[in-house]
Design a protein around this nucleic acid. Sequence first.
DNA 1: CATCTGTCTATACACTTGTATATTATTATC
DNA 2: GATAATAATATACAAGTGTATAGACAGATG
Lengths: 231, 231
Amino acid sequence: MSISPTTGLSGSMKAPSASSASTVTALGRRAVISREDLVAAALKLVGPHRSVSSLSLREVAREAGIAPNSFYRHFRDMDELAIALIDQAGRSLRTIIGEARHRATEGRSVVRSSVETFMEQLSADEKLLHILLREGNVGSDAFKLAVERELSFFEDELRVDLVRLAQAHDTAVHEPALAAKAITRLIFAMGATAMDLPRERHAEIAEQMIVMVRMIIVGTQTIAVHGTVPD
Amino acid sequence: MSISPTTGLSGSMKAPSASSASTVTALGRRAVISREDLVAAALKLVGPHRSVSSLSLREVAREAGIAPNSFYRHFRDMDELAIALIDQAGRSLRTIIGEARHRATEGRSVVRSSVETFMEQLSADEKLLHILLREGNVGSDAFKLAVERELSFFEDELRVDLVRLAQAHDTAVHEPALAAKAITRLIFAMGATAMDLPRERHAEIAEQMIVMVRMIIVGTQTIAVHGTVPD
DNA sequence: CATCTGTCTATACACTTGTATATTATTATC
DNA sequence: GATAATAATATACAAGTGTATAGACAGATG
């Protein structure tokens, strides 16, 4: 049931770089293919009309140029491969958004900067985002948990930002955790639908996202100041 | 008051044209199975771990008790069956929310009433909601378009409600269409994740949804009154 | 009655899938 | 060079898939 956060599963380091470990003597044939190669092969196969959970083991092996059975040297399942994919996608996106946040603190709007970076990345690094955005609802439990975990990372970081942002404006935030959750889920849901749209409309979607996020931020601040709200 | 598709007890008319029994004389053998029966069979197969797009034609035929080839008498594809399923799910949910809205106007909070009805239905009529909530991201274009269409129905109805609600409180709404879109997507995204949680936690999720929706409503009203907002 | 027509079934084909088993290839150490 | 260990392959199998083709059934029409 372990999600296996990194490639750490069952202490089998097949990576070719593993021989760099001094004392450890790797016996046997040198691995000609790595976990990363398989992940990359899977990545080449996913797309707007191809979900990770619909990939077959043989298909990935074919794309990677190995025999079907060799797959088992690196992953037990397609599920395990899928989780590795999610990890990579999550790491990538978190890095990107981190940069956006950093860029934002030196000037422009945090909201606009983050949303625009998100949408840029949607175009540039399509595949990874695809996986994270739209495949959290299908697939195995492990799969879903892995996506859920990535989302909660975003929520945590965003919550901290929301509080800091409010303090900078001398105001407060009502239920920052909930506000962060709402923003995260909303952005991801909007991003998922945006991926089916032509590039020209991405800017338009980004503007919609910005307004939506501002509604939530203004709402949570207003509630914090004026107390609860009429039904 | 059952939301379920009234799984056609037995072969009534099957013709999609619903030619009824007027002057048109149906030649040949009487259909022993109907489109609705096939839809019902597919519905029995979907679940938390089984997406519609992963169902096979043979599987549905087996569940319905017909030969695989008989499937083609009713649908061209599994895709076409999937779209019929979405239509049914959308109709069902719209009816339910309509009732919630009606119930709300005679007293309690529209937000609370709608959200709670939504979550109740999530438990009661799981299968149909599953389909609508989580399968909009995978599957064919036709599939995705069908889900998108259902969502836009909700958005339209919600937008009207938002404006009316604001008028009743002597205030205004900033970009009601966007606010409606944000609320819809958010509720659906939250609902999708809620389905993987045990029933006991549904009430908790419902409370979170209510707060989130209020944030958006308060936000859009505040922006409408105080104009735009600092970055 | 026979005939026609649409519904359903049976059989079959070519294909893909996951995986079990056995074999070969390549490397590091002795 | 021999040996041991490991990576990768080849072959095979049972199961599942979509669908083409042809025939069997049942009921209204002539």
